[in-house]
């Protein structure tokens, strides 16, 4: 499984890429492999305020719909239209063109609680 070392992670299998006061969020390679065949992605409205742990997007495979959670509290500032048009990007490029949404982080210190690559790798065994 690919677990890039420059990203942060949380236990519900989202990855986080911090850039200034915003983070980009997507699902990990491990998560996309478990989901398989992503056929639909539902993204949040830009401007929506979310609390850490809120279901914020939905990624659906043939078999199941899975909630994607906000890793930290913040405001949705951008979503990825490409992944709505081509949900399979979540499978083929989970850390790149398969990103889901960007949040402006409410409290930067919240990011300290996110896992680093080594810790996430240990979690998924």
């Amino acid at each position: 499984m690919n677990v890039p070392t420059d990203l942060r992670y949380n236990a519900s299998h989202e990855w986080i890429r911090p850039e200034g006061d915003t983070i980009t969020v997507g699902v990990t390679d491990h998560a996309q492999a478990e989901l398989t065949d992503v056929v639909f992605v539902e993204l949040p409205a830009v401007g929506r305020a979310v609390d850490a742990g809120d279901p914020t997007a939905v990624v659906e495979s043939v078999k199941a719909a899975s909630d994607i959670y906000a890793p930290v509290s913040g405001e949705v500032v951008e979503v990825n239209p490409a992944v709505e048009a081509d949900p399979a990007l979540v499978n083929t490029d989970p850390y790149g063109n398969g990103w889901l949404f960007k949040l402006r982080v409410k409290n930067a210190a919240d990011l300290d609680a996110m896992l680093d690559a080594a810790a996430y790798e240990a979690l998924i065994g």
Partner: peptide, 8 residues
């Protein structure tokens, strides 16, 4: 077995 490679 629910799937081997992918349902699709």
């Amino acid at each position: 077995p629910v799937q081997y490679t992918s349902i699709m």
